[in-house]
Design a protein around this nucleic acid. Sequence first.
RNA 1: GGUCGGGUAGCUCAGUUGGAUAGAGCAACAGCCUUCUAAGCUGUGGGUCGAGGGUUCGAAUCCCUCCUCGAUCACCA
Length: 504
Amino acid sequence: MSQLNAMLADDKYGTKPVAPDAPLYMVEYSSPNTNKPLHLGHVRNNLLGYSLCNILAANGLRVVKTNIVNDRGIHICKSMLAWKLFGNGETPASSGKKGDHLVGDYYVRFDKEYKAQISALMAEGKSEEDAKREAPLMVEAQAMLKKWEDGDPEVRKLWNMMNEWVYAGFDETYKRMGVGFDKIYYESQTYLDGKAKVNEGLEKGVFYRRPDGSVWADLTKNGLDEKLLLRTDGTSVYMTQDIGTATQRFKQYDITKMIYVVGNEQNYHFQVLSILLDRLGFSWGKDLVHFSYGMVELPEGKMKSREGTVVDADDLMDEMVNTAKEVSRELGKLDGMSEDEISEIARICGLGALKYFILKVDPRKNMLFNPKESIDFNGNTGPFIQYTHARICSVMRKAAENGVALSGALPEDLDISEVESGLIQTLAKFPDVVAQAGAEYSPALIANYIYDLGKQYNSFYHDFSILKEEDSQMKQFRLLLSRKVANVIKTGMGLLGIEVPERM
RNA sequence: GGUCGGGUAGCUCAGUUGGAUAGAGCAACAGCCUUCUAAGCUGUGGGUCGAGGGUUCGAAUCCCUCCUCGAUCACCA
């Protein structure tokens, strides 16, 4: 009981305040390409990244949320070229399409036309390899990339315009998903720094140049291979850009720890990056964290952008919210509510279902997303937890209506049941769970904890009467206990980036 | 082939700092709303924890071997 009293006194229970001089953690997540819209894989990335930031902050750390936008490269030129050739001047405004979707459509279009050209060339007797290289579209895309690098005004203008379309689209998606960033980096603005840094390393003898002019890092002492950093023609590769971005970040922030939220297919890349940054003298390079998460698979297998088997992030959110609305209607939960209220609750529940579904799973694991079956609102789901919260809010509302005043503290000697004391014990674990989730970078721990709490509470709710309890002290106790459960649910879900409604 | 990560109920997942009969949800079946929100609660059935060996009083958990699935090892990003 004294435990409960202590918890009740603390309305930020479970989280630690962030001191101005706390260690600074920078978390990079999302990292989209500007040639296509966000899909389910990005959704997992964004939710994990955002939640991780919340959890770190709850552990008293200063957090900078950052995003690196891959806004240059051949893939960008592909959609630019396809738009130029086949677009007839189509714009988001003229077509009514979201900018990122519009650009993505041209990326798909490029691939389609490119494949046709390859087939045609192969029919003429060319080898597949030659056909891929000689196809006019590819030749032209490469020429465009070169022009971009040379700063050709026309190409840059097109590039700017189409990127702006995409950013407008991304902003909408991010906003809806409920994620955001403190600082956004663009590869187009960091890759030159990467080249400079590599050259610096070359002078210091950290890297070496081959006779053909390419620059390499020798990682054989670390049990790895050699890694290319600058091509023969002097252009940069993926790794070079990450070094450049790191350089800028290092200058701008007093980083204690750098966390990269990136899929596990890049484990090797980050292993190498860590070694390279360390050799280049970045204090946090050696201990950088690659928050590596598994793929999201569909029942049909893996998602492939070009084959149209991706689950689009916007479509997915639409579908979740619509389903939530239907479910609410069927259950008759929304009777007497305004259309705005209905939409808001459907939004919270639909997104809650999606977010919780993704975050409850151990990030390292590949996960299966079945569009038909995964959208569930019963059992171990976001809506179950949201429902528990709404239920408690309902009781609290009724208590207020009945004029029940809530006192601050409870008598120590109240004789409570095992179920109630178990609930207090579970509540008491919350700070430890938050700490562990922070130490292990695991939103899933929070998710599973809240579920247990909700389950335990519902069982209690079923067996014990709160407002009808005659003993006023006992009633006080149960009300305060319930309120604390709701409070922890709200805080915990907040760490996951999930909202909780007051009624549903 | 090298490296890394998985393999727990029909399905989706917890549990892995060693500890008692391995837990949830979904799906199936059986109950519970004139009572604080039934998106809830209760119960039934369902698992040689990939296989084998080892360490230990005790192993899903630690060690070894093997099987299997995936990722990766690009002058792609």
